[in-house]
Design a protein around this nucleic acid. Structure first.
Lengths: 214, 214
DNA sequence: ATTAGTTCTAGTCATGCTGACTATAACTAC
DNA sequence: GTAGTTATAGTCAGCATGACTAGAACTAAT
């Protein structure tokens, strides 16, 4: 379950997108589904998620975290399946490199049709978690490149939370977080006053899998 | 992974306790471990957690939530094991009914020795989650009975967060949460002014498994 | 070159929550 | 009756937040 920002076709403002793969066999043949695959004996859960993601979409996200283990009885009509779902945030540059083909395509997170299995519910939950984590933790920066303007950070929040934020107040808050570092660089080439560039110096998260990572 | 409140031997104030089971076979024979068991084909993850808990300790907790799926390669020396861990909160009355025997015993959460497998790490993470959820959400009430005094709620917080809280300020905050309902009852029999009793009217949580539960 | 238009950025002000603290009420034990 | 303790209410300063104003800095059009 991967999230990335891409410009909306119409407004050009960044919105949330998700890569899906088309089912090429039953059940749900022809429908779109989350990328995934089996867990082998020689890899950890996180490694398996990375590998499956790499194989299906070519993506290698920096931010990868366990979402939830889904194990309802009727998730697949043919057999009992337990899915340990991970979710990832990728930067725009990475997302642009992703393989796209007849059977792999990006979709807007807020405009999905009916997907295979219980994947609509999984995505709903992932969106809920994303919004939650964004409102508290400092997670939005993993959707941006290394250098960014404060207006870009605000656009991420506005896209994910789906509401407008006051630019001045948002600035004040972001600048108050210690993980945000001011640089001497400015973003040139815009139509108006060039905004200052900032960096994020924090670490991903506090999962059991990521805890000891320095 | 079950949490319950029990009075400390010395001070009598409530503290966090955890039931553990003794390993009766290799690996880690003789060491204490978290209760658990296999997932069968005909039960959901949550049902399996409930059942295994019931069978090993006799407990049937009201609050049960998925903690994390642990799937590192070297969790067990003999074979590859993936554990989807659930955590539960039980009320004191329930906890008192739990089976206790030679091979099932309660331990103070802050005074555990070396446990089997990676269970120390699992408990550390569960404690971290419990403290986190308690600081934000309204979860403490699942460790109490139906009726409780505000001082009892404060004692729960003090036990879990391991620091003292100002009684007056804590009152103000708790009374401000809409899920807390004042009753006309007072707790009689204490040594001093009888405190008013309150009830919790909220719902457990927002897990995928619990979401639709009304 | 000047002006208009836009965004970037800093600052003000009222409001609400929080921690520290004081004061009174209500009960038990002596 | 009085001392001791907890329950409960209230005050006050400090800090974060939302709404808002204003100037700075750049581009594009005139």
């Amino acid at each position: 379950m991967i999230f990335a920002l891409r410009p909306s076709e119409r407004s050009g403002r960044p919105t949330l997108w998700i890569p899906l793969v088309r089912r090429i066999r039953e059940p749900f043949k022809g429908l779109w589904a989350l990328p995934g695959g089996p867990l082998t004996h020689a890899e950890s859960l996180q490694d398996a998620a990375s590998r499956n993601l790499q194989e299906t979409t070519g993506l290698a996200p920096r931010y990868l975290e366990q979402l939830y283990a889904f194990g309802g009885l009727h998730r697949s009509p043919t057999q009992r399946v337990v899915s340990i779902v991970y979710w990832a945030l990728v930067q725009p540059t990475e997302a642009a490199l992703a393989d796209e083909s007849e059977n792999v395509r990006w979709f807007r997170a807020d405009r999905l049709g009916e997907l295979a299995f219980d994947h609509n519910a999984i995505i709903d939950y992932a969106l809920w978690r994303l919004r939650n984590k964004m409102a508290y933790g400092s997670i939005a920066y993993h959707l941006l490149g290394e250098y960014f303007t404060l207006a870009q950070v605000r656009e991420v929040y506005e896209a994910v939370l789906d509401r407008e934020l006051d630019p001045a107040n948002f600035r004040r808050q972001v600048k108050a977080t210690p993980e945000i570092e001011e640089t001497d660089q400015y973003l040139q080439g815009g139509k108006h006053r060039p905004p200052r560039l900032y960096r994020f110096t924090g670490r991903p998260g506090l999962d059991p899998d990521n805890r000891s990572t320095p």
